[in-house]
Amino acid sequence: MKNIDGCGIGLRREFLEDFSALKKKPDWIEITPENWIFTPHRYRDTFEQIMDSLPVIAHGVSLSIGSPEAIDKSFLGDIKTFLDRYRIQHYSEHLSFSTLGGMQMYELLPLPMTRAMVIHIGDKVKQVQDFLQRPLILENASYYLAPYNEMREIDFINEIAEYADTTLLLDVNNVYVNGTNHGFDPDDYIKQIPPSRVAYMHIAGHLEYPDEVLLLDTHGEAISKKVWKLLERTLKKINAPVMIERDNNIPPLKELMGEYKKLSKIVAKRGAK
């Protein structure tokens, strides 16, 4: 990916000022455009100063690429204006749906994994790319039940990437969570992803429900040892930039930067940085 290399972190309003004051910043940042499209006055100067100083990836949450209805052009127009304004070349979204019949759920809901859905999403990806004049990077989302499947998740993702000729955002935590919840081997899953398809990677925390075999992809906890280990094994196969994604229960930046340092060391070990 152009200008994106090494390790990144998801920028959040909760630590915007502290981030701005950091002497040694991450190699790059990821932002959620929906949270910054209407940049309020109180954050604008700091946000723009950060945006001017680092390479940026936009990671959306409301595109709802799997919805049966057509892409919301008005929403996409807002996204394009934002990406153009800050000259952001890289835009990623989730392989899921959050809107149905114009009703918003604000959560990433699971898709039926079928051939028809592969074509449906693949065609929509092409439309989005044409509209935005940028590639759309797709992320493997976590899911807690599979409502109607004809194929395995890994085949579903690979076929979409192939059909739309696009790249993937590989969320290593999501692979681990889904593997545990649905009984597949995360390493085997990662082995089946063509390394050249991976644009960048996420690593995040999850919550373990002790009463049952269920991991919740909260992105609100520290990264677990098992996910760190999975990342180490993944990096032996896939040479792509990696970042820490924390969406909920945001800790002080110092704590996140502790994880960032750990990530940097792991990435440096593989010799990719």
Binding site: L100, P110, A116, H120
Partner: peptide, 17 residues
């Protein structure tokens, strides 16, 4: 996509009600 749409509609309906 008929089946897929029906599955998704039912899924959302269960969440909503």
């Amino acid at each position: 996509m008929k089946t897929e749409t029906a599955v998704m509609e039912r899924f959302v309906q269960i969440i909503q009600n």
